[in-house]
Write a protein that binds this DNA or RNA. Structure first.
Length: 272
DNA sequence: AGATTCGCCTGAGAGC
DNA sequence: TGCTCTCAGGCGAATC
């Protein structure tokens, strides 16, 4: 399940491979994913050089020479994989981007992903990008900012941190891990967090994401890098998926509960 | 308006 | 073996 570190890893893989390459053509093998894929997309991208590859939240942005930007979201199970131009289409290969030496295939069994196109100048107004909060690894995601966002909120801090209007890119896995590192129970009302706790949480989110990016992301079920290799941050999980296993700090059995319909893992001893 | 729930999807794994 | 059931979850939309 791609979260920010996985998407960042994918972007880095794309940059390495696609530096100043030309997108020769795009093939749509189906007309919709989570949303409908614009039918004129292949025409808009044909024979365009890639100016740059950027990321906003979990969206991969391929900026083209002609002022258009391809928007790709991996959803739950999406993959972007390089394969030889002549290799056969496999199940769930929904969109193919053909370059001179190989093709980049968007494969997504659950089809929660997105492929869209938008004039680069209009990106800030795109419906999927317009209302996003700050990037977690940027300066504007600060304790001061998070404190203001949490003020007066009764919702669980875990839900607030996973809300893309608060901060983008923090999914279930990294929310669990960051809350553990910060020593805060996921169920705590956001507005009840003290200044010190907000500071710890802000730091924990940034550090967790940095460590995960350094490990190439986490490979659970679906995620792989663009060359098919696995991320390995999942071996560093302290709480996620470790129900009843001993806490890495105090050895107490970790607990699992459902918060906002998401599995949440925590240490009842270390987190308050 | 803030908080919560729903719905889109398929594959993996459990249980029978 | 093969069926059915449950679960996983990003995130916009709908509802409370």
């Amino acid at each position: 399940m791609p979260e920010l570190p996985e998407v960042e890893t994918v972007c880095r893989g794309l940059r390495k491979k696609l530096k100043s390459q030309r997108l020769e053509k795009c093939v749509l093998n189906r007309k919709n994913l989570r949303f409908e894929i614009p039918q004129n997309l292949p025409n808009l991208v044909k024979n365009q050089h890639l100016e740059s590859i950027t990321r906003r939240s979990k969206y991969v942005l391929l900026n083209l020479q002609n002022g258009q930007t391809l928007i790709i979201h991996l959803g739950m199970s999406g993959r972007l994989i390089f394969t030889p131009l002549l290799s056969a289409t496999t199940k769930h290969d929904h969109v193919e981007f053909h370059f001179s030496k190989e093709k980049l295939v968007f494969n997504d069994p659950r089809r929660f992903g997105v492929v869209d196109i938008c004039p680069t100048a209009n990106l800030p107004h795109h419906k999927l990008l317009a209302f996003l909060g700050p990037e977690p690894l940027e300066e504007d995601f600060s304790p001061t900012y998070l404190k203001a966002k949490c003020a007066g909120k009764k919702a669980a801090i875990k839900n607030v941190v996973m809300d893309s209007k608060t901060v983008v890119g923090v999914g279930n896995i990294y929310a669990n891990e960051a809350l553990f590192d910060a020593g805060i129970l996921p169920t705590r009302a956001a507005g009840s967090l003290k200044k010190k706790e907000i500071e710890k949480l802000t730091t924990a989110i940034k550090e967790t994401l940095h460590r995960a990016i350094a490990a190439g992301g986490s490979s659970l079920n679906d995620y792989v890098q663009t060359d098919g290799s696995l991320g390995y941050f999942q071996h560093q999980f302290k709480v996620y998926g470790r129900e009843k296993a001993p806490c890495t700090v105090c050895k107490a059995p970790l607990q699992k509960s459902v918060i906002g319909q998401r599995s949440s893992f925590f240490c009842p001893n270390c987190q308050v």
